[in-house]
Structures are given as structure tokens and as C-alpha cells.
């Protein structure tokens, strides 16, 4: 089992519903977020294009955050989901420094926090909150080892990219182009 996410940049309108849904689902303090939206504008008027991307922890196969964590708080769960055990976290911030995606933040209560792929929902068979709320249905969540899954299907049929592949982290969020 290998959980991953594919996000269709052709459909995303950048509304940030994924951010709000994550905050209310996971009780993220306002002013912080586990996911966010990036807008990249390219070209010169009137030959301009925009790419809109909902970004979050890439739940990398080769995760620097897990490797550098001195207490083992950052660890892999089933399906490759990278999770921080808040009780074990001492808030040293090494993982924040090591993440090429800037996906982690220091929670006011003293630990490091980030996207969990809504593991509590996924274990019950639901999609992560961001995926289930998205008005444009631009996000696909699923198991890469299941050849019949929607995500395997879209990745097979659509050109896609991941972010900072040169970092060698083997990220598991894919952007459909």
C-alpha cells in the first residue's frame, strides 16, 4: 500500500477551500496551515498563464524529516503516511529545516505539526478533508499499489510533475498538467 495524491492544475481555481477544510477538520490554529495554495504566473500580457497548486506535505518515500528527527516523533505509518507523534516531539525544529517543501510549522503548543493525509479519516475509508471538500474535484487520493485506483488511472493518462524532484525525496504528491 502506498498512499499518494494527484492534483489537477487545470481544474484548481485556487479557492483555498482545502486550507479551510483542513483547519476545521484538524483544529489547526488560525494563522497556521497544513496546506496552502500557490499561484505561479508566467509570461507577459496578454500571453500569460497561471498555474494554481494546492500544496502540502509530500509524504516522501525518502523523507529527510523522518531521518533527522532525534526522538522518532516523525515516523512512517502504514501506506507511507508521514506523521508526527506530538507526545514524542520536543519541538527542536530539525524537521522544519530539513523539509524542502516548507510543509511543517511549530504549533503554539510546542510541537511540530503538518499534514497527516487526514489519517484518521483515511483509516475509516474516507478521503482527506481537502479532497472531499474541493468544489472542483481537482484532487485524487488513493493507493498507488492498487492498479484499479482512480489515482493510478489519472497518473497513467495525464502528463504530471512533482515538486523539487531534484531534492531526491521521492515526493508522493503529483500535479497533473
Amino acid at each position: 500500500m502506498r498512499y499518494a495524491m494527484a492534483i489537477d492544475t487545470r481544474k484548481c481555481v485556487g479557492c483555498s477551500d482545502c486550507v479551510v477544510a483542513c483547519q476545521t477538520e484538524n483544529n489547526v490554529p488560525v494563522g497556521f496551515c497544513r496546506d496552502w495554495v500557490v499561484e505561479v504566473v508566467d509570461g507577459t500580457y496578454p500571453n500569460v498563464s497561471i498555474e494554481l497548486r494546492s500544496e502540502r506535505c509530500n509524504h516522501c518515500n525518502n523523507s529527510p524529516c523522518v531521518r533527522c528527527c532525534p526522538t522518532g516523533a516523525s515516523h512512517f505509518e502504514d501506506g507511507g503516511i508521514v506523521v508526527v507523534n506530538h507526545n514524542k516531539c520536543i519541538g527542536c525544529g530539525a524537521c522544519i529545516e530539513s523539509c524542502p517543501y516548507d510543509a511543517r510549522y511549530s504549533h503554539p503548543e510546542g510541537y511540530v505539526d503538518k499534514c497527516t493525509f487526514c489519517i484518521h479519516r483515511v483509516r475509516q475509508g474516507s478521503d482527506p478533508a481537502c479532497v472531499s471538500v474541493c468544489p472542483t474535484k481537482c484532487m485524487y487520493f488513493g493507493d498507488l499499489s492498487d492498479p484499479n485506483s482512480k489515482i493510478v488511472n489519472v497518473l497513467k493518462n495525464r502528463k504530471h510533475k512533482s515538486l523539487a524532484p531534484e531534492a531526491g525525496t521521492q515526493p508522493q504528491i503529483f500535479y497533473l498538467l
Binding site: 476545521t24 490554529p29 506523521v83 497527516t116
Partner: peptide, 21 residues
């Protein structure tokens, strides 16, 4: 203060991995 205001004003206890249950 931004950090003080918790979404939905729920002061629920986080589970150990930060996911809500």
C-alpha cells in the same frame, strides 16, 4: 491574537499524532 483564536472555538485535545478523533 492570531495564534490564540482556535478555529471553531473548539478546545479539543489533539490526539497524539495531531489528527482529530
Amino acid at each position: 491574537g492570531l495564534a490564540n483564536w482556535v478555529v471553531g472555538s473548539a478546545s479539543s485535545k489533539n490526539s497524539s499524532n495531531g489528527s482529530q478523533s
